[in-house]
């Protein structure tokens, strides 16, 4: 039998698992983000962000996080990385540089960490190993 206990993955630090609850909360935010996959929509958004966002009934907090490009807040509010990365791409930010921003490390330090084998698993398995979480 599969484990159906309540969200065993919530203990993983620094991670949002994009489950059905997050998908529901983030629906309009994520649909806005994916609209930027197409050039004509990127042009419309870049010509007037506020007016473009009016088409998507997201929450005021989600809308503010989009306008401020608060990448971590977007995830906290139900955004998923594959969607928010479309907004980042529109701003000229690729996946690696976005990770540099989300981790708070900065682009150079993050790239350097990856070149030296990435973030180790030791000390990063559960929230009890992270002081801040």
């Amino acid at each position: 039998m599969a484990d159906r206990s309540d969200k065993p993955y919530e203990d993983i630090p620094g991670t949002f698992v994009f489950d059905a609850d997050r998908s529901r909360e983030g629906y309009h935010l994520n649909q806005f983000c994916i609209s930027l996959r197409l050039q004509k929509n990127r042009e419309a958004f870049n010509a007037g962000e506020e007016a473009y966002l009016d088409k998507y009934p997201m929450t005021a907090e989600q809308r503010e996080a989009v306008l401020k490009r608060d990448w971590n807040r977007l995830l906290e509010l139900g955004g998923n990385i594959y969607y928010t990365s479309k907004l980042a791409a529109n701003d000229g930010i690729n996946f690696q540089n976005l990770a540099g921003l989300m981790t708070g490390m900065g682009v150079e330090a993050y790239r350097d960490m990856m070149l030296h084998g990435g973030r180790p698993i030791e000390g990063n398995r559960s929230k009890s190993e992270w002081e801040e979480e």
Binding site: T103, Y110, G118, R119
Partner: peptide, 10 residues
């Protein structure tokens, strides 16, 4: 891991 504060895990 592409997202949030644990990004870069290998």
């Amino acid at each position: 891991q592409l997202q949030y504060k644990r990004a870069g895990l290998i």
